[in-house]
């Protein structure tokens, strides 16, 4: 599945929810299912300090594809991380660097990616894009 097909899949998954609380119920489930980063591996270099919640991000490259593991102390933030990781995982640095993460807007969660929300998500996406750019140059 291409990066954009994965986005489309999420958009369709969310179409069944017309109530905000149902939508969040689903995001919370995703958050609970996402593998956690163990406490001992939550080192400062992985930490993205938001004003409202904290995010940890680990990046890896193998065979020209990037992998991400991420965690947050807030479960809703974590659920959204789960969606972002699902879309970006195992994609090439080029595709990640140029990705337009339209699905966030389309499922109505863009407020969480606004820098003023300061839950760490906007900085996380920025960090992912920067590491993709760096991988491109290497």
């Amino acid at each position: 599945m291409t990066l954009d097909q994965k986005q489309q899949e999420i958009v369709e998954e969310f179409e069944i929810y017309d109530d905000w609380m149902d939508k969040y119920e689903y995001i919370i489930e995703l958050g609970k299912d996402l593998p956690m980063i163990s406490e001992s591996e939550k080192t400062d270099d992985k930490l993205i300090e938001g004003c409202q919640s904290r995010v940890w991000l680990a990046t890896n490259i193998s065979d020209g594809k990037m992998q991400f593991t991420a965690d947050s102390d807030a479960i809703i933030t974590k659920g959204i991380i789960g969606l972002l990781v699902r879309v970006l995982n195992n994609e090439s640095p080029r595709d990640i660097a140029t990705a337009d993460l339209r699905f966030i807007q389309e499922i109505g969660l863009h407020e969480h990616l606004s820098p003023t929300r300061s839950n760490g998500l906007a900085s996380m996406v920025k960090r992912i894009k920067l590491s993709a750019l760096k991988a491109l140059q290497d």
Binding site: W20, M21, Y24, I28, C51, Q52, S53, D73, A74, I75, I76, T77, N119
Partner: peptide
């Protein structure tokens, strides 16, 4: 429960509270 999660869900139910430091 993280304050941010609770604040987000309260917001979606029309309730404006402040969360954070």
């Amino acid at each position: 429960i993280h304050p941010f999660d609770l604040g987000t869900l309260l917001d979606k139910q029309g309730i404006a509270v402040r969360t954070g430091h």
